[in-house]
């Protein structure tokens, strides 16, 4: 029996995938792969898990989300649109001349973008800083930082991992979009991360491993965050890069690229068909 909330989240994610395809066709460029692998996670965060108010984006008590893998901006922008932070006209200007929507998000251009990101390996430290203030000022907000798995090859991520564990930042939740692929190939062929879960655990994090496309698992796990008192939580979300578009799935060539011609047609058909199923 699927709960109404999970049914709703699934439907929103399908809408998001369709919008992402439309936007990528308009833009002619972008980074589809990692956005399609992480869109289910972002859907659950923005439509179920996080305390946020689209009418008051700077609300002091809000939960914070940092898209450390800034190249998945199309996912964040789409979710912000669906959640009421921006209109569709703005969304469709993605990456066009004079648009507010840069390929990597700028916090001063769009309400709801908490931090300007794009260079990998920065977000977890920034999230740790936000979490630190939450502790200092005894605020109840949580900080969610979404990283790519390839991103965690950056040394600065592990500096931040040490820092967050040392300072017992249990209000900090790192989420890794473990789609196994980076631009040049499989993470394990380029610069191996495994044993990955053990690395985070050894660094003092509480780790929860989930299927990053299973809303029941996403919801039940994120709902429990902070999972462990006095330890930061790492959600190891196993995902499929390019999820939802047949020719993109598990294909590193779709890390970056625009949708054109026949492929645009197929992507539109597939995302439309998924919506019709509901």
């Amino acid at each position: 029996m699927i709960s109404p909330k999970i049914k709703e989240l699934k439907h929103i994610a399908k809408q998001a995938r369709k919008l992402m395809v439309e936007t990528l066709i308009c833009a002619g460029c972008g980074h589809p792969g990692g956005a399609f692998s992480s869109i289910d996670l972002m859907t659950a965060l923005y439509f179920d898990i996080m305390k946020i108010d689209p009418h008051n984006p700077q609300w002091d008590e809000r939960d914070r989300f940092i898209l450390s893998k800034g190249h998945s901006s199309i996912g964040l922008y789409t979710i912000l649109h669906l959640r009421g932070f921006m209109d569709k006209e703005t969304l469709l200007t993605f990456r066009q001349d004079n648009s507010l929507l840069c390929g990597h998000p700028d916090m001063h251009k769009i309400a709801g973008v908490e931090m300007s990101t794009g260079s990998l390996g920065h977000g977890l430290s920034v999230g740790a800083g936000l979490a630190m203030v939450g502790k200092m000022d005894k605020k109840n907000y949580r900080v969610f930082v979404l990283m790519g798995d390839g991103e965690t090859q950056e040394g600065s991520v592990w500096e931040a991992a040490l820092f967050a564990a040392h300072h017992k930042l249990d209000n900090l939740v790192g989420i890794v979009d473990r789609n196994m692929l980076q631009i040049d190939g499989c993470t394990e062929d380029i610069l191996a991360l495994e044993p990955y879960r053990a690395k985070w655990e050894t660094f003092g994090w509480h780790v929860e491993e989930i299927d990053g496309h299973n809303f029941k698992q996403i919801k039940e796990t994120l709902e429990r965050c902070p999972v462990s008192a006095s330890r930061p939580t790492l959600i190891l979300a196993n995902t499929v890069k390019g999820k939802g578009i047949s020719f993109m799935e598990r294909n590193p060539a779709w890390h970056g690229g625009g949708l054109k011609g026949d492929q645009a047609e197929i992507a539109l058909q597939e995302t439309n068909a998924a919506l019709v199923e509901d």
């Binding site: 430290s125 920034v126 740790a128 800083g129 936000l130 203030v133 000022d137 600065s156 931040a160 040490l162």
Partner: peptide
């Protein structure tokens, strides 16, 4: 006061996070 240890990149990132939260 936070001694961030010998991890300067993280220190500057943490500073950015502190500033985001008004410090």
């Amino acid at each position: 006061y936070i001694d961030c240890g010998i991890a300067e990149q993280n220190m500057v990132g943490v500073a950015a996070g502190l500033a985001l939260a008004g410090k």
